[in-house]
């Protein structure tokens, strides 16, 4: 079992796994996103307080939950990479990082748009908005550290350390911001009381969450495949797998010669 898991440290094996999973993720993601969003936006009952504007929940909540989830997945990959020295774990880490960052951005964006009609302002220093904003900074930190390194193996390790420092910090940040918010929350803005959500609203939301999760998985898999090929361009297995299709190797070598000649 352990040996089988460990075999995914090899890029060719990881690539094979990506190939297998890609279509499943694509099918589930497309189906549940279509069902969830059509159901949620078109057929679910509207909220008696917020009217139709509450429907943004079907985008906002999944993206907010999965922004956090993607960060945890990224940090777990970093841990695997640091402890067992899997190259592929770092590839996964950097494949999912921008996807997670975009999810965080979507949740902030939709949150802000939801806030306008509800709170009467685009931005308030609400506890959840604030910690989501900090999460976005953490993502950007990891990504910019990764891009700052020339050697991508070194970059992976460095960004991995930062991802783990971040994931240890997320609960602390969450708690501190929550606490700060209750201290400073003035009486002018009261949070809208949240009635427990009705079942007809709940089902499409659940389907949307599944859709978003598999969509993130799908995009990450495609990015991961790209990353593996780009990084392993010079290895024999890539040439073997793609046969004559890939003359990239020669193209890259050419480019290198030209650079060297200058």
């Amino acid at each position: 079992m352990w040996k089988w898991i460990n075999s995914f440290a090899k890029p060719e094996k990881a690539y094979w796994l990506c190939d297998v999973l890609q279509n499943w993720f694509a099918v589930v993601a497309t189906a549940s996103l279509v069902i969830g969003i059509v159901w949620g936006l078109g057929f679910a009952p509207s909220d008696y307080q917020q009217g139709d504007s509450f429907r943004i929940i079907y985008i906002h909540v999944p993206s907010a939950i999965l922004a956090m989830g993607a960060y945890v997945a990224m940090a777990i990959a970093a841990l695997v990479g640091v402890v067992w020295q899997w190259r592929t774990a770092f590839m996964f880490m950097i494949a999912i990082a921008p996807v997670g960052a975009v999810m965080t951005f979507i949740s902030l964006f939709t949150g802000s748009f939801w806030g306008k009609p509800m709170w009467g302002t685009w931005w308030i220093w609400d506890a959840r908005l604030t910690s989501q904003l900090i999460l976005l900074f953490l993502y950007l930190g990891v990504i910019s550290l990764y891009t700052a390194f020339e050697d991508k193996q070194q970059a992976g390790k460095a960004a991995g350390v930062m991802a783990m420092v971040g994931v240890i910090n997320i609960p602390i940040i969450h708690f501190s911001v929550e606490w700060w918010n209750t201290l400073h929350q003035g009486a002018t803005i009261t949070k809208i009381g949240k009635p427990s959500i009705a079942l007809e609203m709940y089902w499409p939301l659940l389907i949307c969450i599944v859709g978003f999760a598999t969509f993130i998985g799908w995009v990450t898999i495609v990015r991961m495949k790209n990353e593996i090929i780009m990084r392993d361009l010079h290895r024999p297995w890539v040439a073997k797998r793609f046969g004559g299709l890939v003359d990239l190797e020669a193209a890259v070598a050419n480019e290198k010669d030209m650079k060297g000649g200058q």
Partner: peptide, 25 residues
């Protein structure tokens, strides 16, 4: 992490400031 990079100063601030938020609070 940034000691080997040229001009890592701004990057350093970018990485660390979010981490210090709880302390500041």
């Amino acid at each position: 992490l940034t000691v080997g990079l040229h001009r890592g100063g701004v990057l350093l601030a970018l990485l660390l400031i979010p981490i210090f938020i709880p302390l500041l609070i």
